[in-house]
């Protein structure tokens, strides 16, 4: 009997403790502050935060908008539909973006991540301000297919948004610029810099294995001219020899209309490759092994092929199978599981 009493007591105490923990968590959620903090190992940001600093209310509004399918013509597709948090904000498994009415785009959905460090977005760099970026997928006929002005009107006519705008901008008035600024606040918080590599680089206790270190050194020699800094991109445009003609998609030249830009695409970051397959602007490679093999012996020549890929009259970057494997081991240290599991960034 005494045993049972004690048992009852224990269950009671345990239950009470659980309640306490749960309520503490709740408290923590509602009072969580969102502040933009640049990781120490990344270069200077490019976003102009003085015009639009990240605030908690702005972030929450931006997140709500990011996951709101009413921003598409038939209310089927949100930004988050093709940029899912668990795939580092790409459209995992889709070679090219898959939008409204099951229409297909022509390019692989890029990750929405570390946006504050760029001022030219999309594979062709056609968008020169993060604040202007959402207009493109919202209006694109194969993505969300809604005039931006109509999208803003839909939000204006949704009473539930008023308190969110009031909290974020001090007034219930809903405008296009405010909507865009809130989305920028959310996107600017999508910072991925907590991989094993980052913790090693910042001396936070992580160590690279001998193979990973070899891979890192090879990477520095062979890959880092384009995949530079701890962003792992130079944010510039290169033809990396995926094709020998670019009639179906001229890349950067689609924006500049310059012959020297045909076939050039923005260098993608190499962070979170584990979650962002397939690879390249057209999603043509399913594995990292295919990517490394491409640079070793698959590079196709054309007039605008990057000079880094034709050194010493050799096309491509010669890499032995062992070297390729070591580079892949290094690249895997760039996977940031904390980022893809961060529930603050997921649809609520």
């Amino acid at each position: 009997m005494a045993y049972f009493l004690n048992m009852k007591k224990a269950v009671f105490v345990f239950g009470f403790a659980l309640l306490l923990i749960a309520s503490c968590n709740k408290e923590k959620d509602s009072k969580e502050e969102f502040v933009f903090t640049a990781p120490a190992n990344l270069p200077a940001t490019k976003y102009n935060f003085s015009n639009n600093p990240v605030t908690t209310a702005g972030f929450i509004l931006g997140r709500k908008l990011f996951y709101d399918a009413t921003l598409s013509r038939d209310s089927s597709t949100s930004c988050g539909s093709c940029h899912t948090s668990f795939s580092s904000f790409t459209h995992h498994g889709h070679a090219v973006s898959h939008g409204i009415d099951n229409k297909l785009g022509i390019r692989n959905a890029p990750p929405v991540m570390n946006m504050a460090w760029s001022d030219e977005f999309m594979w062709d760099g056609g968008i020169n301000q993060l604040d202007l970026l959402p207009i493109a997928p919202i209006e694109n006929p194969v993505e969300m297919d809604l005039e931006f002005a109509d999208a803003v009107n839909r939000i204006k006519n949704t009473a539930a948004y008023k308190p969110y705008f009031k909290a974020a901008f001090g007034s219930e008035e809903i405008t296009g610029p405010k909507l865009l600024q809130a989305m920028s606040q959310f996107m600017n918080m999508l910072i991925s810099a907590n991989s094993k590599y980052d913790k090693w680089k910042r001396n936070e206790g992580a160590t690279l294995t001998a193979h990973e270190t070899d891979g890192y050194n090879l990477f520095q020699q062979k890959c880092s001219s384009c995949h530079s800094t701890d962003l792992f991109t130079d944010n510039k445009f290169h033809n990396n020899g995926i094709k020998d003609n670019f009639n179906s998609d001229s890349g950067r030249a689609h924006i500049t209309q310059l012959p020297q830009d045909v076939g050039k695409f923005k260098t993608p970051t190499l962070r979170n490759l584990e979650y962002t397959k397939p690879f390249m602007h057209d999603g043509s490679f399913q594995t990292l092994e295919e990517v490394l093999a491409h640079y070793n012996n698959g590079v196709k020549t054309s007039a605008t092929l990057d000079v880094a890929l034709k050194q010493n009259s050799t096309v491509g970057i010669p890499l032995t199978p062992t070297e390729q494997q070591k580079i892949i081991l290094f690249l895997k240290t760039l996977n940031d599981e904390d980022f893809i599991r961060d529930t603050r960034f997921a649809e609520q």
């Binding site: 999309m122 968008i127 207009i135 209006e139 999208a151 405008t175 296009g176």
Partner: peptide
């Protein structure tokens, strides 16, 4: 304003 008067005078894909 790309959400207002300028809505049909703005290239979203090529800012």
């Amino acid at each position: 304003d790309p959400a207002g008067a300028g809505s049909d005078m703005y290239w979203s894909w090529n800012s």
